[in-house]
Write a protein that binds this DNA or RNA. Sequence first.
DNA 1: GATGAATGAGCCTTCATTCAT
DNA 2: GATGAATGAAGGCTCATTCAT
Lengths: 210, 210, 210, 210
Amino acid sequence: MTTRPVVASAEVPVSRVARRRDQKVQDILTAAADVLAERGFHGMSLDEIADRLDLTKATLYHYFPSKEALVSACLEVLATRINDRLAEVAADSAGTASERLSRLIATQLVIIVRDQPQMARMFLQPMDWPETYRQRSKALRRQHDMVFRSVVREGIASGEFDVDEQIAMHNLHGAINYVPVWFRSKRKKDIEAMAAAVAANLLRLFRASS
Amino acid sequence: MTTRPVVASAEVPVSRVARRRDQKVQDILTAAADVLAERGFHGMSLDEIADRLDLTKATLYHYFPSKEALVSACLEVLATRINDRLAEVAADSAGTASERLSRLIATQLVIIVRDQPQMARMFLQPMDWPETYRQRSKALRRQHDMVFRSVVREGIASGEFDVDEQIAMHNLHGAINYVPVWFRSKRKKDIEAMAAAVAANLLRLFRASS
Amino acid sequence: MTTRPVVASAEVPVSRVARRRDQKVQDILTAAADVLAERGFHGMSLDEIADRLDLTKATLYHYFPSKEALVSACLEVLATRINDRLAEVAADSAGTASERLSRLIATQLVIIVRDQPQMARMFLQPMDWPETYRQRSKALRRQHDMVFRSVVREGIASGEFDVDEQIAMHNLHGAINYVPVWFRSKRKKDIEAMAAAVAANLLRLFRASS
Amino acid sequence: MTTRPVVASAEVPVSRVARRRDQKVQDILTAAADVLAERGFHGMSLDEIADRLDLTKATLYHYFPSKEALVSACLEVLATRINDRLAEVAADSAGTASERLSRLIATQLVIIVRDQPQMARMFLQPMDWPETYRQRSKALRRQHDMVFRSVVREGIASGEFDVDEQIAMHNLHGAINYVPVWFRSKRKKDIEAMAAAVAANLLRLFRASS
DNA sequence: GATGAATGAGCCTTCATTCAT
DNA sequence: GATGAATGAAGGCTCATTCAT
């Protein structure tokens, strides 16, 4: 058996063979993430993933030893991707804490509404997932949370924010990740407008009253 | 076939037979709601419901024509139950809009965290439910939303709140229904403290800045 | 789920329903035992059993909760049947220990060669069975062994036999159960002749030399 | 395709290439025999064999055209190995027929209990093997049987043994090959003691009564 | 010569649903 | 009104085998 899924490896694959394998793994993960997003964890079947890739279920097992492993890798990849992107935005230290937090919120919104709607699931639905994934997704959420939280802490330190950090963070995440449930448009302009409005409203959770 | 699912009917059952049937329906719905809450939509099986009621699967089909119908009725009942309770709280017009909204939030939190954790699912997870339920649960959520929204509108009208109503409502629901994901304790005292803190924080979404 | 396999129950089933169920269970066990005999444990598939009974695999699960349960019940039933029959023969205390042992051997031979060739498997092949069954079949073999052993002990006590009991018993069983491997005829006469010859030879393992 | 399975060839491989190939074949057969012994025929998978050899399944197909061929070669090799060893013991014509037979039995026991437990399977379990192997293993068993039988015949000829040759041979093999089912120790001393006891008891099957 | 990739067939198991009694 | 029986469809997983590189 050759189940050696290279997941989210930063290193460049060496051989042509390895590169091809990596590409396939990525394809599979993408398809899996799509299905995961559309059908949810329980509605996701290996058959459907295989179908979309024009493969057999058996082939999937060539790359991942189990459904569980595939889903886990999915989460890992998706979360890493989103966390990286957010970290980039967070790295830009221009502006007030409010402005920076606002940028983070908007970025996250664009991601979960348009770029990676799959992610909304991961943040929102772990309640009825098998324990294995809940653990994993909890860890990933924690990592994700830290990006936002560090900005919040700066705001608190500078007096710009005045808030029960813990509670506000939870509310922030809850509100953000709920957006895909009620917002449907895929038009860039609509999304940007929505993101701005949501960010503006959510900033209230933190801002010290003048 | 006599599949006449009496669902949350307000009318008083007439005959003894009808009354008995109605009771059975209620029993089934209760059991179904429990299973739905514990296992989630996809983990819910008719077998388990039947087992808990000491019935056979086939008998369930005497009262509901399909799993879908059973689940729908379930949602109906649960939502009605919760909406009624909230409406009661909303009916108490004492205090400012903030105080009333606060009470609503706290009530909803107690319900989804302790009394009817099933509901959290309905509000949070319709994304991966079959289309049928999504439609239905959307309607129920709208009804539910109106309870909160009417209070918010009063606050806006009186100038106590100053906010993009639509956006703020969504954020409010998102934050509230996310609580079961991060809050676990079942102790009354813990829940009340949490509810107060969350409500306080969320009110910021609405309050006009002094 | 109604998986309540009544196995080897001595009591007469009460209701007509129960009787019919019992009959079906017996049918399934018979078919399963046949397949078990022909294909061996690993080659035995629920599909084949179902096919022979003109049933679906799913139906088998109506009567047995798993393949394991079915196989276990199979062993139980078969072993019980054979043990009962042997015990009957053993109960006939006429003749010397040699004669009685001879009758037991012949009976066992007729059973495993003609009546229940499945049994040979159980005695002979537990080596590569899953642990669960090995435990069970070991217990059943022990029970089976006792029938023979009690006669042997009488022979030893009376001085008719003179032997290392433990070793001889093992050799006896090994030789007996090996017969289906080399003997093929199903003709009554052939079997009886073979049984007599084998028994005569095996008695030598025990007999005190004059 | 160059699938030329060199099996137990007595000829010395000519070229360096051929020698290397032969070595590989031997390695594979050894590993396969191990797996066959540990997991049984049905539990034996090419994957596991390849894993142990740090090869891929596909490579196995370079040396053997099918699983069937591999298993057959396995049997061949194992049987040849054991038969050669026994033939060696049989060649030692010192002592009475009883003594010689005794030595053969003890040797066979040591082999199947400690050295090549795989063999026990081959002798004991052909009943549920595919027809192909049964034929083959029958032939091998015949060859194996002849080693014992020739000694037995000498004993009969000399009057030392007095027995239905055919029946006694079968019983002998059955009893011997059953030993691994009930005997577990791997300690040399235990094995030798057991072997002696078993041999002593089995000789009774043949010895003319004084 | 060696291997990674791919697959078809098969296996055990679950489940919503139908139907005769 | 209730139930046991039966099932088709699907799901996750394994495995011997083929093939292009």
